[in-house]
Computed example of a mutant assay.
Amino acid sequence: MDVNCIIIYDNTAQASVLFASESIHDVLGYTPEELTGHPGYRFTHPDEHEALALIHTANVNEQRMSSLTMYRSRHKNGTYVQTDVIIHYCYDSLITTTFIVHSQDCLKRRMRVNSADFAYFIQSDGTIQLNDSQEKTKHLRDFKDPWGKDKKLEKKTQEPRFCLILNRYTSNCTIVFATKMCEIVELNQFDCIGKSLYDFISPQDHENVSKQIELSKSNDLISKLRFHWITEENKLIYIEAVVSCTYDGLVMVSRLCPSFITE
């Protein structure tokens, strides 16, 4: 597995850091406390700020389930390192997994890029390049600025989504963190800690979910899932999710599928 970590940002224009996992020290040399509360742009190359702001605006406007951006992150020692950052928009935050890029053309990196819905490569001159199969970057400038006077997201409808962080070193994917919006599947964000993800998945979906999670673990790519969530009252809720993997845990961001309730 490539060196990587989890970073969570808020959905303001500054993209301030809310949380960083312990492996941030291996990736960029900082402790989690040294990043928390600071604007994310502080830890990126100044020449790339405009490009990052355009991509951040698009991710927030579109509420994208998965995108990947390659840019230079600032190491604590003052150098800049190439990083692939997978971004999952999750209701009121952006959950990211950050990878150091050791080789531009390794198989795992290609798989990671190809598994994202959008992939952006910020060049050293600040220009943005997309995969050949995707539309031109001019569409980024077409998004309306969503930020109000206080640089926070103006009131708009946010699709309910929740994030779970799972223990990647357990076969039953123990839940170690959950966001409040997990209430959309009638789950309490505190009561679920320590329980297995599979306690809440319909048995008929166990095999498929397990295979996709193992694929994400072994190849550092984004796995896309659909499965039935079981509530305490045995109601089935159809869920769509994306999963990406780091040293510090599996990140799973989920939302309801259309016509999600099955009697």
Rank of each mutant, 00 (worst) to 15 (best):
I7W: 11
I8T: 11
Y9H: 15
N11W: 03
N11Y: 05
T12C: 09
T12I: 06
T12Y: 06
T12E: 07
A13S: 14
A13P: 03
A13R: 15
Q14I: 13
Q14M: 15
A15L: 12
S16P: 00
V17L: 12
V17E: 10
L18Q: 13
F19D: 07
F19M: 14
F19K: 13
A20Y: 02
S21G: 03
H25V: 00
D26A: 11
V27I: 14
L28F: 13
L28R: 07
G29E: 15
G29M: 14
G29L: 14
G29W: 12
Y30P: 15
Y30W: 14
T31I: 00
E33G: 08
E33S: 15
E34K: 11
E34N: 14
L35W: 05
T36C: 13
G37R: 01
H38N: 09
H38V: 04
H38C: 03
P39S: 11
P39Y: 10
G40R: 06
Y41N: 06
Y41H: 09
Y41P: 04
Y41Q: 08
F43Y: 11
F43K: 04
F43R: 04
T44E: 03
T44I: 01
H45R: 04
H45G: 02
D47W: 02
D47G: 07
D47A: 12
A51M: 10
A51E: 12
A51K: 06
L52G: 03
L52I: 09
L52Q: 06
A53W: 05
A53L: 11
A53T: 11
L54D: 10
L54K: 13
L54V: 07
I55N: 03
I55T: 05
T57I: 09
T57M: 13
A58V: 04
A58M: 13
A58S: 08
N59R: 13
N59Q: 13
V60D: 12
E62W: 00
Q63W: 14
Q63R: 10
Q63V: 14
R64A: 06
M65A: 14
S66T: 11
S66E: 02
S66H: 05
S67H: 03
M70V: 12
M70G: 01
M70R: 07
Y71H: 15
R72N: 04
R72Q: 05
R72E: 01
R74A: 12
R74V: 07
H75E: 01
H75V: 03
H75F: 03
K76D: 13
N77K: 05
G78K: 02
G78A: 03
G78V: 01
T79G: 00
Y80M: 08
Y80P: 09
Q82V: 01
Q82M: 03
Q82H: 05
T83K: 05
D84Q: 04
D84H: 07
D84M: 05
V85K: 04
V85S: 09
V85C: 13
I86W: 00
I86C: 01
I86E: 00
I87G: 00
H88V: 05
H88N: 14
H88K: 02
Y89W: 04
Y89N: 03
Y89S: 02
C90V: 15
Y91T: 10
Y91C: 05
